[in-house]
């Protein structure tokens, strides 16, 4: 996996989510836009608050969290 050179800024996180067909629920968790009762989960099965969202990686649009442990797992897969 590669890190790539395309990023997004904090102030457009919700616009990026929209591109992926996601939105936020009242508590700030990422949900499916067409079913807002359905929270999006990480590959480990964790719900993701917008403030904890790192981005998207390959694998059915896998959403990843931004804590050190999640990013270590990601970093280990990078070339």
């Amino acid at each position: 996996m590669k890190l790539g050179n395309i990023t997004f800024s904090k102030n457009v996180r919700e616009d990026i989510l929209e591109l992926f067909g996601k939105s936020l629920d009242e508590e700030g968790f990422i949900v499916e836009k067409d079913d807002t009762s359905q929270r999006v989960l990480t590959p480990k099965g964790e719900e993701i608050h917008i403030d904890e969202w790192a981005g998207v990686v390959k694998g059915s649009e896998a959403f990843v969290k931004n804590d050190a442990l999640s990013l270590i797992e990601l970093a280990k897969k990078l070339e």
Binding site: L3, I6, K58, L71
Partner: peptide
């Protein structure tokens, strides 16, 4: 391209 699309903060942190 098998890449990660990350927020700028997470990009730096991952690096």
């Amino acid at each position: 391209e098998n890449g990660a699309f990350l927020s700028a903060d997470s990009f730096q942190k991952t690096k």
